[in-house]
Simulated assay, not measured.
Amino acid sequence: MGGRTRGPGWYRGDCHLHTVHSDGELTPAELAAAARAAGLDFLVATEHNCAAPPGAWDGLDGDDLLILLGQEVTTRTGHWLALGLRPGQLVDWQHRVGSAAFDRALREVRAAGGMCVAAHPHAPYPGGDLMFPLEAFDAVEVWNGAWASDRPWNADNHAAHAEWGRRLAAGVRAGHWQPALGNSDTHLRGQLGTPQTVVFAEELSPPAILAALRAGRSWIAESSAVQLEFTAEADGRRAGIGERLDTAGRPAGLYLRLSGVRDPQVRVHTERGKAPWEPGMRVEAAETSFVRVEVRHPDGRPAALTNPILLT
């Protein structure tokens, strides 16, 4: 779905939401209007264990809003997101840890050109705690805003984000790290786009958006008010979020532009831990395989989280 494509650039989206066709309170038309109001460029409809009814999203997309289809695969041993499904495609959810049906479901999503995302892996309700191995998925949802109205950043998000961060160095060095995503998990009015994933794609089309999400060319923002640009440069070469920088053995200079956050607390994360952001900071590829940044409010709530820049 979608109108005329737009070229290379940063696009804002929400990849986890529900309508009246599963357990949400908003219609597709209301969510499309909310997406435009929230400054989003794309969204993915992810009903629980059901495909969007034929025609449910027809006419709601356009040059300013791309709509992709998906599903929240809701099992008794955790939930995961199937993003980029074909119209009418339904992913089997009757599988458990270790079953062949789980592997088969993942293959079917990828064969359709889609991607598989571990959803809210530490959700505190029956079946919400993800028991499937994280490495089976293409990405991990580390920031879920389903309770944004009263708990913008809760213990469940903290646990998911910390687990992702602990696994990052090993994944980067092994060549199969998983990007972090942030989604609203909208069920109620006013939740959409809190948070949102900001992705650099070659165009606003389903294949380009999904390819960029898989590559980790993205960062997470609490709202469209937050603007961020993070790059690293060495030996005349520059790389952005999700890209690899060949430093040629030289220190990499870090560059950050940030707006939309009052009194931001910025931390730079590497394999050696975290440090407060300082203009002119440099890192050595001999000491860390990646660098990423986190932006928080004075009370510790996150405003933005980036995927890593990879260093060699």
Rank of each mutant, 00 (worst) to 15 (best):
W147E: 07
L204G: 10
G39K: 11
C15M: 11
R166C: 10
E243F: 02
Q265K: 02
H269E: 12
V109H: 10
S218H: 00
H122C: 11
L181T: 05
L81F: 04
A252C: 04
A180H: 03
H95R: 13
A82L: 04
Y255I: 07
V117Y: 02
T306R: 01
D41E: 01
H176N: 13
A169N: 08
R104M: 06
L85E: 10
T27N: 12
A35Y: 01
G242I: 00
G2E: 15
D103Y: 07
R250T: 01
V268W: 08
A82K: 04
W143V: 01
L26S: 07
R238K: 11
G84R: 03
T247P: 04
C50P: 03
L256P: 14
H95C: 11
R250E: 11
T306F: 06
T46I: 06
I220W: 02
Q178S: 01
A275N: 05
L258H: 04
L40K: 00
N144P: 14
V142T: 12
R4S: 13
W57P: 12
P195F: 00
A169M: 04
G127T: 14
L85I: 06
L192M: 01
R237M: 14
L213R: 04
T247Q: 03
L68T: 02
V268C: 08
R107H: 15
A212R: 09
P8H: 13
